[in-house]
Design a protein around this nucleic acid. Structure first.
Lengths: 112, 112
DNA sequence: CGTCATATCTTCTAGTTTGTAGAAACTCGG
DNA sequence: CCGAGTTTCTACAAACTAGAAGATATGACG
């Protein structure tokens, strides 16, 4: 019924960013990973909101980082992919691959 | 501000289905294309809602089909990709490729 | 002919989930 | 206490969803 059976667009990006920084990534660094790769500039709030949703769904797991930041601040919350998260990523990838299969962009949107 | 600068997940799928059936596709057939390729079973209402949104954004163009259906019913509304739609598709593809680049799923979600 | 039953297709309505941004709160070192 | 680095909260906009309602053509049947 719900739409919650699939990954939204931004959820995919965040999940991939978590994968790229497995176990070491936290809010800020994940935001940066996305920015560096895509040029998008999501607000930090968006990232956390999505991260929280992904954790609720069991696709991601978080734990408090040891507090040894040298330079002050609140303890980091590190994220890691769960097996379910990895599976969701593979599933969405498979779906999109099928949708793209045979796509011919030459002349798309041509003569009206 | 809005999120509307990018393509949502389902918007991507619909846009690709339109591409695959360029100029001949209409609500029902587009729904089927998605189902056939991905196994998803979106309601027809979802498809039209998304198609309308895409047309508003100028990514898709629609026109009434000639009424020669042999077997009664309302006239079909055919869809085609616009140049902007093709560009949006290429853009989202590029973004996702960058997010996936170097993704290593081996052992992802491993030892907790 | 007329109008009705039926098949196709589209539009409308109403609600949930995702995505967004910015402000507020927390926590550490100095 | 103050400033820097982080996370959480609040409030709203956009995307997604399903199903019911509306529209429009054809063929049947009197």
């Amino acid at each position: 019924m719900g739409k919650g059976d699939f990954l939204g667009e931004f959820e995919q990006m965040v999940l991939l960013a978590v994968l790229h920084q497995d176990r070491t990534g936290y809010g800020m660094s994940i935001r940066q990973e996305i920015e560096a790769r895509t040029g998008r500039d999501p607000s930090i709030g968006s990232v956390y909101a999505t991260l929280d949703r992904l954790e609720e769904k069991g696709l991601v797991h978080s734990h408090q980082g040891a507090s040894l930041p040298e330079r002050g601040g609140r303890a980091r919350r590190h994220f890691a992919l769960t097996p379910e998260g990895a599976a969701a990523l593979r599933a969405v990838r498979r779906m999109m691959d099928r949708m793209w299969a045979g796509a011919d962009m030459r002349g798309a949107g041509g003569e009206v």
